Simulated scan of single mutants.
Amino acid sequence: MTNPTKSADPTEPALLVDIDDGIATLTLNRPSKLNSLNPELVCRLADAWDQLAADPTIRVAIVTGAGERAFCTGADLGQLIPLFTGARSPEDEWDERLHGDLRLLDKALLRRTDFSVPVIAAVRGFALAGGTELVLGTDLRIAADDSEFGLTEVSRGIIPAGGGLAKLARQVPWAKAAEIVLVGDRISAQSAAEMGLVNRLVPSNQVMHEAQKLARRMAENGPLAMRKAKEVMITSNGLPFDDAYKVESRAAGVVMASADAIEGPRAFIEKRPPNFSGR
């Protein structure tokens, strides 16, 4: 697996992707810039998520940051925001591509409802602004007990429009979400855990181990079942029960018609591990 503790080689891409036995590990690879989002990283992240979504062999993904100081500190204020505001013109292929399709940032931050691969965030150090928004786009979160979170955009005169405003109040109580968004201060890992923003806190040097252990456990599950379950959780969120049940039933119909739905019970009866195919 990719080692997220190493320093980035300047010749390496801004995103490292490693796939091992159905588990994809995406490492934001700008540790000297606290893994902030520049145009290259945004484009590579958007492409990586699309590639994982199209690959039925991928069971689960882990997203993390290189180095020990930061998961991601959001937009690179010298490169990304000036490109969006028009304060600077495109200078290379990554700038040109992002300038021509701003939806790539939505894809990069998982600000979408069509991505059903389960994702684990492995957070060490700072996860601020767009870094917190990326965490909000994941499904399970393992964080270092000394990590920090925050949507700090209002202190820069902008807003967390990478999914933060839409998602946060659906994931934590309203008053907590309002404080995070409108005050803009950082919050501790302990506070994040108490409000349910993260699943587990562990020492920093155990974050990737814990995330990989969880990913391996999830990789034993039916991949189609997990993707469809996540799809229903996302698309039924906020619907009246009758409408939500219809979404659930449609997904159940697809899963029950699959080879995996036959294999799972059969393996249980035969007292052996299931051999899921994702079909």
Results as ranks from 00 to 15, higher is better:
residue 68 E to Q: 13
residue 87 A to C: 13
residue 80 L to M: 09
residue 118 P to G: 06
residue 88 R to H: 08
residue 101 D to H: 08
residue 102 L to P: 00
residue 58 I to V: 15
residue 96 E to W: 08
residue 97 R to L: 14
residue 85 T to W: 12
residue 119 V to I: 13
residue 110 L to N: 02
residue 118 P to K: 04
residue 109 L to G: 05
residue 118 P to F: 07
residue 111 R to M: 11
residue 77 L to Y: 13
residue 63 V to S: 01
residue 84 F to Q: 11
residue 122 A to W: 12
residue 89 S to N: 14
residue 91 E to G: 15
residue 91 E to W: 05
residue 109 L to H: 12
residue 96 E to G: 06
residue 81 I to G: 10
residue 97 R to H: 11
residue 108 A to V: 00
residue 60 V to W: 09
residue 81 I to Y: 15
residue 102 L to S: 12
residue 99 H to Y: 15
residue 97 R to Q: 15
residue 71 F to W: 04
residue 120 I to M: 06
residue 102 L to F: 15
residue 69 R to Y: 06
residue 78 G to A: 14
residue 90 P to R: 00
residue 87 A to I: 12
residue 98 L to K: 05
residue 92 D to W: 06
residue 112 R to T: 03
residue 73 T to M: 13
residue 98 L to R: 03
residue 106 D to N: 08
residue 75 A to K: 03
residue 80 L to D: 01
residue 62 I to F: 08
residue 120 I to Q: 07
residue 108 A to L: 00
residue 61 A to G: 05
residue 106 D to A: 07
residue 88 R to W: 09
residue 102 L to K: 14
residue 83 L to W: 07
residue 68 E to R: 14
residue 79 Q to V: 10
residue 106 D to Q: 06
residue 64 T to H: 09
residue 82 P to Y: 13
residue 90 P to M: 04
residue 113 T to G: 11
residue 60 V to F: 10
residue 63 V to W: 05
residue 106 D to V: 00
residue 100 G to Q: 09
residue 70 A to S: 12
residue 58 I to M: 05
residue 112 R to E: 00
residue 100 G to T: 06
residue 77 L to P: 09
residue 57 T to W: 09
residue 57 T to P: 02
residue 66 A to P: 04
residue 107 K to L: 11
residue 63 V to D: 01
residue 122 A to P: 09
residue 117 V to N: 03
residue 58 I to S: 06
residue 111 R to D: 10
residue 97 R to V: 12
residue 105 L to P: 00
residue 83 L to E: 02
residue 90 P to H: 00
residue 109 L to A: 09
residue 112 R to W: 02
residue 115 F to K: 01
residue 65 G to K: 04
residue 76 D to F: 04
residue 122 A to M: 11
residue 116 S to T: 13
residue 68 E to W: 14
residue 82 P to A: 13
residue 59 R to A: 13
residue 114 D to Y: 06
residue 103 R to F: 10
residue 101 D to T: 07
residue 65 G to F: 04
residue 113 T to F: 14
residue 64 T to D: 07
residue 82 P to K: 07
residue 115 F to Q: 03
residue 72 C to D: 03
residue 99 H to I: 07
residue 76 D to E: 13
residue 85 T to R: 11
residue 62 I to T: 07
residue 105 L to F: 12
residue 122 A to G: 09
residue 99 H to K: 14
residue 63 V to H: 04
residue 59 R to G: 10
residue 122 A to V: 11
residue 75 A to L: 12
residue 104 L to A: 12
residue 88 R to Q: 10
residue 65 G to I: 02
residue 116 S to P: 03
residue 105 L to K: 10
residue 104 L to G: 06
residue 105 L to W: 07
residue 68 E to P: 00
residue 76 D to V: 04
residue 79 Q to M: 14
residue 60 V to C: 12
residue 110 L to T: 01
residue 94 W to E: 10
residue 58 I to T: 11
residue 120 I to K: 04
residue 61 A to I: 02
residue 91 E to P: 02
residue 58 I to W: 04
residue 88 R to Y: 07
residue 83 L to F: 07
residue 66 A to Q: 06
residue 117 V to Y: 03
residue 84 F to C: 09
residue 89 S to A: 15
residue 118 P to S: 05
residue 72 C to E: 02
residue 92 D to R: 07
residue 59 R to F: 05
residue 77 L to C: 10
residue 106 D to Y: 04
residue 106 D to R: 03
residue 111 R to P: 00
residue 78 G to D: 14
